[in-house]
Design a protein around this nucleic acid. Structure first.
Lengths: 196, 196
DNA sequence: CGAGCACTTGATCTATGTCAACGGTAGTGG
DNA sequence: CCACTACCGTTGACATAGATCAAGTGCTCG
């Protein structure tokens, strides 16, 4: 399977400086090259991939996170990355790579990892709400990944996620909104009381 | 914020060059200073700490992992670290800090984080076995953390862990052994078939 | 020798998983 | 524009892994 990045870099001689994948697209396969990127907008899941191709959720990247930092050392991606919503990425680092930006990236990765770990413990509703909080923008709007991806992230089942989202909607914690180019069941206005 | 270069100067080197905490000891409180350390032996849990002092499991460090890398940038620890078994740590880095060692540390942290995430999904027995595999040494011996800590790591309950350990013992997957200075219920020889 | 933990074990409950059928939406091709 | 088709999501009935509650037991260390 050709990756999004491969298709783009192959056709354009100068290395591309930004990517705009759609939801569902594989950005980089595990073991492939592709350099490091800063995720400007959107949500990306990282997975480990077994020999038989089965993928296991490993981590989450959201706006501001660095993807593929390890390629600067090994040349290849440790994880497979898949866009869960429409994304925007820029090549990273823009300028010369300093120790400080690496350290900042490391610290951010650790904090993100801790958040992902927290998404997999406790009551099911709380996990879903924690994810919603993580993905909501300043205005309290969220574009959720599809039910199955939420399930993979939270270690629950997609039927459970479906029921919980409905319950939160009926409780007024989420209000469905329509956003251009986004599946109707995935974009919500979050009740302010549920945030922070 | 202190710079990368400033933290590298001789005046900022830690006074102590190694630590040997016992199981249960808090190594560094969240928000405290203490520099970076390489965990040579043992297991350490990292927790986020709320205002009311409640701690939430965030990650795990095992032999070879770097603790408190972020102090090189921020000067303080992001997480509270607690020894789960007897440990040995050395100040890190020993020599001058290169970009490569930072990158290697970042890559290692990401892989460790993915493993921790995996410990919180799937059937309870499989999670416990995955942890055992993670902690076992080359000879197939493990010193497990206490039941409650295993429960925190795997997002299960200590009663469940207790039952599972017993079940694995009765199935022959684990055989209790006695090690000097280790609680009798925590050291095991792992059946080779369970590893790899 | 006694106190305090850590661990074990049993009985019972329930949140979530599982299975199965259906419904809606978005994209496709006529 | 409409019909077709694949997904994706919803919903119900039922099953069960693991949680919860409640006694005990037995290390370990003072």
């Amino acid at each position: 399977m050709k990756s999004f990045a491969a298709m783009n870099s192959a056709s354009e001689m100068p290395a591309v400086a930004s990517l705009c994948p759609e939801a569902g697209e594989v950005l980089f396969p595990a073991g492939g090259s592709g350099g490091a990127w800063r995720l400007e907008r959107g949500v990306v899941r990282l997975d480990t991939v077994g020999r038989d191709g089965e993928r296991q959720f490993a981590s989450l990247a959201i706006a501001g996170d660095i993807l593929g930092c390890e390629t600067l050392l090994f040349g290849v991606h440790t994880f497979q990355s898949t866009a869960l919503t429409r994304c925007v990425l820029h090549a990273w680092p823009g300028g010369p790579l300093g120790g400080d930006s690496l350290l900042a990236s490391l610290a951010a990765a650790q904090r993100r990892a801790a958040e992902v770990v927290a998404l997999r413990g406790g009551q099911a509703v709380d996990r879903l709400l924690a994810l919603v909080r993580l993905l909501a923008d300043d205005a309290g709007r969220v574009v959720l990944p599809m039910r199955q991806d939420i399930a993979d992230i939270t270690a629950l089942r997609f039927e459970t996620i479906s029921r919980l989202v409905k319950r939160l909607e009926q409780a007024g914690a989420l209000r469905s909104i329509r956003l251009e180019g986004v599946h109707a069941t995935r974009s919500f206005q979050v009740d302010p009381a549920c945030l922070a």
